[in-house]
């Protein structure tokens, strides 16, 4: 079985910008995959190349084994994209729009039960006959998701699906996405909410300035970060930290001191000694593993320097 997405030596030059510089990776079938990177890293270009909206300058992309340029019909049939922007066609109602979209994929009335099911699972049934112009932002977001799924694509790309979405809808969307994943769909997610990505995704690719800077499973990617954290609840919040510890301080606020220490080179015992010598007392302490955010910042800011 081919991988859900196979990206080979992908380059994209815009007039003066080299947006992708030889990106090369695979997304296994059935994976919940996080595609991360700061703004301008090349994520959107990459997604647009998968979708056939942008043509690569060099290299190619295969969706379920189908080349997006040579076998574009099969590739597009295999891919569902939820675009980042809230775009709507002001002429139609939700149900009409979904039936049209299904028709463009060559599916007729036989697909109507699936459309009803989509309306139902995305809580759109009540609004099915409402014109799109009269829907709230959250409802429009749901319509975009339904539109992307109308042809039952095995691979689904969600480009920032929760940007500007309230908490309730966000949770509903994640529940729905998890459900799709459980049913065997491959999910590719881009998001700026790294905590969410960490909870949902099994594997990650991190892009920075058009290059792949990390590609690994969640545990492996977190383990790449060489630091751990020591969180202390101070008895006296107003302390003067000794110069010997300055380099280790991650943050200090509201009486909580977080120190960063290297997995190999630093030892907790020596840090505690330094604290004792400086007469800094604390009522509680615990160690913490790095979050995806720490790894992300480490990988994407180190490059620029």
């Amino acid at each position: 079985m081919p991988p859900a997405i196979k990206i080979s030596q992908l380059h994209k030059h815009y007039k003066t910008l080299h947006a992708l510089r030889g990106v090369d990776f695979e997304v296994p079938t059935g994976c919940f995959f996080g595609l991360l990177g700061p703004n301008g890293a090349g994520k959107s270009t990459l997604i647009n190349i998968m979708a056939g909206l942008v043509h690569a300058t060099h290299g190619n992309v295969r969706i379920m084994g189908y080349d997006v340029r040579q076998q574009w019909r099969q590739a597009r049939q295999s891919l569902g994209i939820v675009p980042q922007e809230l775009v709507i066609d002001p002429f139609f109602s939700v149900r009409q729009l979904l039936r049209l979209q299904s028709g463009y994929f060559g599916l007729g009335a036989e697909n109507n039960p699936w459309i009803e099911q989509l309306l139902d699972s995305l809580n759109l049934s009540e609004k099915a006959d409402t014109n799109l112009q009269r829907l709230s932002g959250g409802m429009k977001r749901r319509v975009l998701i339904a539109q992307a799924l109308v042809h039952k694509p095995p691979v689904i790309v969600l480009d920032e699906p929760t940007a500007g979405v309230d908490v309730e809808l966000r949770q509903a969307l994640w529940a729905f996405t998890k459900h799709l994943h459980k049913n065997g769909h491959t999910i590719v997610l881009t998001t700026h909410y790294l905590e969410e990505a960490e909870n949902l995704c099994e594997q990650f690719a991190i892009l920075n300035q058009g290059e792949l800077v990390a590609l690994d499973s969640k545990s492996a990617i977190l383990a790449r970060y060489p630091y751990r954290f020591l969180r202390l609840t101070l008895t006296n919040p107003n302390v003067n930290l000794p110069t010997t510890l300055q380099a280790n301080v991650q943050s200090i606020q509201n009486g909580e001191l977080v120190l960063r220490f290297h997995r190999k080179n630093d030892q907790i015992a020596s840090i505690l000694d330094k604290l004792r010598i400086a007469k800094i007392h604390f009522s509680d302490l615990r160690t913490e593993e790095p979050s995806l955010e720490d790894v992300f910042l480490n990988l994407t800011t180190a490059k620029k320097a």
Partner: peptide, 17 residues
């Protein structure tokens, strides 16, 4: 109009030649 509203993308994603 579909180019301006951006809804053209829904015609570019399906397999239409």
């Amino acid at each position: 109009q579909s180019k301006m509203t951006g809804s053209l993308v829904f015609l570019l994603l399906p397999p239409l030649s």
